[in-house]
Design a protein around this nucleic acid. Structure first.
Lengths: 349, 349
DNA sequence: GAAAAGATGGGTAACGTTACCCACCACGTC
DNA sequence: GACGTGGTGGGTAACGTTACCCATCTTTTC
């Protein structure tokens, strides 16, 4: 490897020399530490500005904080994640923290593990983990080392905080809405489990609630689930699978908007119309999806608020809180044009 | 701040003691450095595995490399960025590098600056900057310190590499396609410039090419541009602005798919149909947008290839290359159902 | 068989920052 | 006037890693 002749960084020592004080004094000013006179503060600040000094993060990391929050996202194709990230950024940037993101690779536990390790190696001060699929034990192990907030899982843990929306309520709203419109053959698209036996994952809860609601309304015989993934591709594949069933469902409840979009594509491709031939509903209602030209009925969970809260909880944990907090938002249904009563011809069993 | 009693990290010293060798030897094994016998390698590797040792990134950063690539994305709402990121990850992960992302805040130069500083502070080994809006000088300044690849700008610089698609060809393809279908009143949605006098930005080139093509085809009088942004919101606002013009355009060429989706929403909201009343075309053709239920005519630039190439170029630069490279992909038109010939009633001037 | 060349392992001084301690000064207080 | 008591400022030893150098030991060459 060739060493680039990049000009040497301005260090705390340079600032100290320039201001004719000790490095300790400069460090104290930087950290707003106790024991600095106003005169000292001004003098050092002037030197900092003059030299264009910026603290070296890696060096800080060796001693303590990095002022960095790590965010693990399954992928960046879901605009709902963008809402979360915006909320988080809002909350933490005032405290001088910076968010860095790493893709955790959707549904693959090994990739997820690598991503989480990458953040630990980079010595982040806290982690926001969105929709992890790993076993709970792994989360707790991480939480022992680093302040952790998990978003979108229904675990209960004494070691980390949880931010979630009430997926049971959300799924109930959708199924009730469809039933109220007159649907009986309501199908569901969910995410395939890659690790056995999880019940705290949000897609598991949405699917279980769908089944429960169907059963409670005497529609157990019409339960139809396609287990693919919460992506456009997954929605597309899932819908194709559901559409060939006989009799065909009159409504599809996709567990996520992205999957609903994929389902819409499959429905159109099959020559069917929405909501004339089939109703489609999603979940997430990311900002601006209301704009989408086929206005999708969806469940609104306020991603920005969730991200903001996650940020606040992380800052609190970094500041020393150890008691676990659970923050739950109550979702609401936003009915749009992708759902309607089934035509009379569709009602026959 | 409370100090957490996190158990001490396993360090290279622990590994050295456990394997009964020097820290230098361990370090050499870790870096695949010269001067290590096979026996030594195995012994050290065994100790590493046994203790679950992971190199401390911050400590590495103080001495040299961090094995981290920083990616600056304007935002994460555009699936095209996901394609780029996937390509990059593919390319660099085999070399032990990890990508971390930071949002650069779309169209705001100050936010962009903060984001780029954040990566420099975190001592990344290289930066992939997607669609920067800052002045060229700032890019060159950064490139003097860190290997830099810029994606989506048509600058020429001796200090950094460029990965881009030929936006002139792409825009030509769209305008030609629309003209060939019989359109004359073709409007364009572009991004508003926040910094004066850039001509190397991709949206500037797409817009300029649109104007040139219109002029060359004798349609200069029909040039209509809405300058908003390359987002769903921007497309929505832009289309609303264009739709009230009299006479109304028969086609809208949005400079990005996201904007096209917003435009579609506005068109539908205005009670118009696509492509019956108005054709809409986009640009990017992110993977899976072909799935979208209204199949959008778009310009395909292979984001995965672009990301992959960017990764390769960065690794080369990190390895010591200093000569600047420019990699350009030639886009292709993917005509789908959102564009068609205008109805006869729409052709009148 | 001596010298050169190659292969392998280790010692050590940084890298930039901060936590912890100590030293000093100017006050009041008894 | 001796003695605390805050309020300031500085010295220094880490933190974990690696680049650079040197010390062996083995093999090859004349």
């Amino acid at each position: 490897m060739v060493t680039r002749d990049r000009r040497r960084r301005v260090t705390i020592t340079d600032v100290a020399e320039h201001a004719q004080v000790s490095t300790t004094a400069v460090s104290k000013v930087l950290r707003n530490a106790y024991g600095v006179s106003e005169a000292m503060r001004l003098k050092v600040q002037a030197a900092i500005d003059e030299l264009g000094y910026r603290p070296h993060n890696a060096a800080r990391a060796m001693r303590g904080r990095t002022f960095t929050i790590g965010v693990l996202l399954p992928h960046i194709r879901n605009p709902f994640f963008a809402d979360i990230l915006d909320g988080l950024t809002d909350e933490i940037s005032a405290s001088g923290y910076q968010a860095i993101m790493v893709q955790s690779g959707g549904n693959d536990p090994a990739a997820e593990r690598r991503a989480s390790d990458a953040l630990v190696d980079r010595q982040v001060d806290g982690v926001l983990w969105v929709a992890p699929v790993c076993p709970r034990g792994q989360l707790e192990k991480l939480a022992k080392d680093i302040p952790l907030v998990v978003l979108g899982r229904h675990d209960r843990s004494a070691l980390y905080d949880c931010v979630l929306d009430d997926d049971e309520v959300g799924a109930e709203l959708v199924v009730e809405h469809l039933i109220a419109l007159g649907h009986r053959r309501i199908a569901h698209i969910t995410q395939k489990d890659t690790v056995g036996g999880r019940t705290a994952l949000l897609h598991t809860i949405r699917a279980a609630t769908y089944e429960r609601m169907m059963t409670e309304h005497g529609l157990a015989d019409h339960i139809a689930i396609a287990a693919t993934s919460y992506t456009e591709e997954g929605g597309y594949d899932g819908a194709r699978e559901l559409l060939v069933r006989d009799p065909r469902p009159t409504a599809i409840f996709a567990g996520a908007d992205q999957a609903a979009f994929g389902a819409l594509a499959a429905v159109h491709e099959a020559g069917l119309s929405v909501p004339g031939d089939i109703s489609v509903a999603g979940y997430d209602n990311a900002r601006l999806t209301g704009l989408a030209h086929v206005a999708l009925t969806s469940v609104d969970q306020d991603g920005a608020i969730m991200g903001q809260t996650a940020g606040r909880l992380l800052l609190e944990r970094i500041a020393g809180r150890t008691a676990a907090v659970r923050f739950s938002v109550t979702p609401t249904l936003v009915a749009r044009r992708s759902t309607a009563s089934p035509g009379p011809s569709l009602l026959g069993e």
